[in-house]
């Protein structure tokens, strides 16, 4: 069985700082993490590989070159091939341009299933899996909370989705794009000490548009169908709260406040 897993390195949102004086979001210090849902997908794939050892697992990331050291660790955790698609000309790609690049690469691979996250922490559009599926002509399901079955011979996966009103179980014909939901219990395995500095360069493949051959007009900002006009960081405006203790005085103050605002009758 061959699984491709899409993984996006993203800045850790909780480490973003807002520089009030310059009105900008400081991203530089924020360390890169694997998008948590993608990590869930990769951990699921690694579990399958442990249970079914002849599983071949490749991760695919479109990211700046700087992400390489970060991704290399995946090979040390048991991924067979770590693919980094990186090209300066891809900068500024929206989800459409990103899906096109990923689709072009996937067309050159053969696989039983594509794993991915449902959405990313940074953009959070959740559009890549379905756009990619449309480009590749594959079925897609996202928001997957459990993978009950993955059987390439029967040509189907059985997945569970925690819907708004019901728990749903679907059979999805393979190959398919399966988007997982974040699951804190499904973590990537720890790096074994012996693997910490293992040379994995043979397992890392870096390629750019010279290999993929998309037309210049399809790349980056030019190839995007949406364009960001303005970014506002007002959302980071913080309040200066009234600070109280959970003692008699604090509770009285809260009660009084609730009355004043009309939440309780005096």
């Amino acid at each position: 069985m061959k699984i491709l897993c899409l993984l996006k390195p993203v800045p850790d949102v909780d480490q973003l700082r807002y520089d009030r004086a310059r009105n900008v979001l400081v991203r530089e210090q924020a360390r890169l993490i694997l998008n948590p849902e993608d990590a869930t997908a990769a951990a699921t794939a690694l579990e399958i590989k442990r249970a079914v050892p002849d599983t071949y697992l490749e991760t695919v990331s479109m990211a700046p070159r700087g992400a390489r050291p970060h991704l290399e660790d995946l090979a040390r955790r048991g991924v067979d091939q770590v693919t980094l698609i990186s090209d300066l000309r891809y900068a500024g790609s929206d989800t459409w341009a990103t899906s096109r690049v990923l689709a072009r690469y996937l067309e050159t691979r053969d696989y039983d299933c594509v794993f991915c996250g449902t959405h990313t922490l940074d953009g959070g559009t959740g559009q890549v899996p379905a756009q990619l599926a449309e480009l590749l002509g594959l079925p897609v399901m996202v928001g997957i909370t459990a993978l009950a079955e993955l059987d390439p011979r029967a040509g189907q996966a059985v997945v569970e989705v925690d819907g708004e009103r019901a728990l749903l179980r679907f059979a999805v014909a393979l190959p398919a794009v399966l988007g997982f939901q974040y699951n804190p219990d499904r973590k990537l395995p720890y790096l074994r000490y012996a693997d910490l500095n293992r040379d994995v360069s043979q397992q890392v493949v870096v390629l750019g548009n010279n290999a993929l051959g998309l037309a210049e007009t399809e790349l980056g900002l030019r190839g995007s169908l949406t364009q960001v006009r303005r970014i506002e960081v007002d959302a980071l405006e913080t309040k200066t709260p009234l600070r109280l203790r959970a003692d008699q005085e604090g509770l009285d103050t809260v009660c009084h406040w609730l009355e004043q605002k009309g939440f309780v009758q005096p």
């Binding site: 929206d94 989800t95 459409w96 899906s99 959070g124 559009t125 959740g126 559009q127 890549v128 899996p129 379905a130 756009q131 599926a133 449309e134 480009l135 897609v140 399901m141 996202v142 928001g143 989705v161 819907g163 708004e164 995007s224 169908l225 949406t226």
Partner: peptide, 23 residues
């Protein structure tokens, strides 16, 4: 922007080669 709306929209946008803004 429900679970299903967000699955149908990108497929439709990809077919129409149209820009899609989420959420």
């Amino acid at each position: 922007a429900t679970h299903w709306g967000r699955m149908v929209a990108p497929r439709a946008a990809a077919r129409l080669r149209a820009g899609l803004v989420a959420d």
